[in-house]
Design a protein around this nucleic acid. Structure first.
Length: 305
DNA sequence: AACCGACTCAACCGCCTGCCT
DNA sequence: TAGGCAGGCGGTTGAGTCGGT
């Protein structure tokens, strides 16, 4: 059973690409583009390769402005940070590193960076990597949660409680922060930046609902509340209503355990895309958010999709 | 020089998703 | 709405390379 193969494997050539094949593929795409049809491409070019193989060869090796090898410390840092935040979403990680492919980053992580880090930071880093696998609850809010970013250049990888952690900016086009779904952890399925709006798509196993909300970066006050998700769920959801002068009230929802992401997003909203941002300690979040006092609480009706 | 194990990374495999009919 | 198909993705493989003995 299973899917039909995308091409006739008895006809297509496999294995390493020859310089002639590379030249033919590169020349054709530079002249005509891909035509949004990789499967048809090898026939048009006249090479005996699977369309998928052509796509991979182009994306990972032939397309312009690709960098190979020689990862910088800054790239190491970004890869490590994102891996701890979102896991092995190599395509998302690659989108943060211009000129790098997901395949390159995956190989680099698996063969070198992981070992490099583990040997450098030893037990401390190993503990942080393991943290990704720990289920999160509201009663046990880790001061070093899943959305925080490690300072790998520090000798002491784990900061003390309540210390502000500064981090490099991560492009908000990151589209997914899904965590360990097997463990029934609610997930922020995605967030994205579209002009003046932050789009959040939050899903969780307990209530089988998802939320789609957006917020404008221009607002002058916000309110907050929280409520349980589902009857048996110990997890909490924070709800912020943002009073927007131009567009009226906007709503934002965040899962407990994503406090750091909240800060990140609010900072984005307030500063309208900055090059740096802060993660704040979770304790301050209930009282204010980046100087914006949360001065009232409202009921937060759960919405079905 | 020959062997061998470790390492690297290009390429493949198969699953998932979204689009189109 | 269902099914087919192509694109996209992450995991895995294996040929080539390197370094030690």
């Amino acid at each position: 059973m299973g899917r039909a193969p995308c091409c006739d494997k008895t006809v297509v050539k496999k294995g390493p690409w020859s310089p002639e094949e590379d030249a033919m593929l590169k020349s054709y795409i530079e002249k005509h583009g891909t035509g949004n049809n990789w499967i048809a491409l090898p026939h048009k070019i006249g090479i005996k390769r699977c369309g998928k193989s052509c796509r991979l060869r182009w994306l990972n090796y032939l397309r312009p402005n690709l960098k190979h090898g020689g990862f910088t410390d800054e790239e190491d840092y970004i890869i490590c940070s994102l891996y701890i935040t979102i896991g092995s979403r190599w395509s998302i990680i690659a989108s943060q590193l211009p000129g790098r492919t997901d395949n390159d980053i995956k190989n680099y992580w698996n063969t070198r960076l992981k070992k490099k880090l583990l040997s450098k930071q030893g037990k401390a880093i190993h503990q942080q990597l393991s943290l990704r696998l720990e289920p999160e609850t509201t009663s046990k809010r880790s001061s070093f949660g899943q959305n925080q970013i490690l300072m790998f250049h520090d000798e002491n990888a784990k900061p003390p409680l309540n210390q502000t952690i500064h981090s490099k900016m991560v492009d908000p086009s990151i589209t997914s922060f899904a965590m360990e779904e097997k463990r029934m952890v609610p997930v922020l399925e995605s967030y994205s930046w579209e002009q003046n709006k932050v789009w959040l798509d939050i899903d969780h196993d307990a209530a089988s609902s998802s939320y789609h909300h957006h917020a404008s970066p221009h607002f002058n006050s916000m309110t907050s509340s929280s409520s349980s998700i589902g009857t048996n769920s110990p997890l909490q959801m924070s709800h912020y209503t943002i009073n927007d002068n131009n567009q009226g009230d906007q709503e934002m929802f965040f899962m407990a355990g994503f406090e750091n992401l909240q800060d990140e997003l609010f900072d984005e909203i307030i500063n309208n895309i900055t090059t740096e941002f802060e993660f704040r300690g979770t304790e301050t979040l209930n009282n204010n958010c980046l100087g914006h006092e949360i001065n009232s609480f409202v009921d937060c009706p759960l919405k079905d999709n």
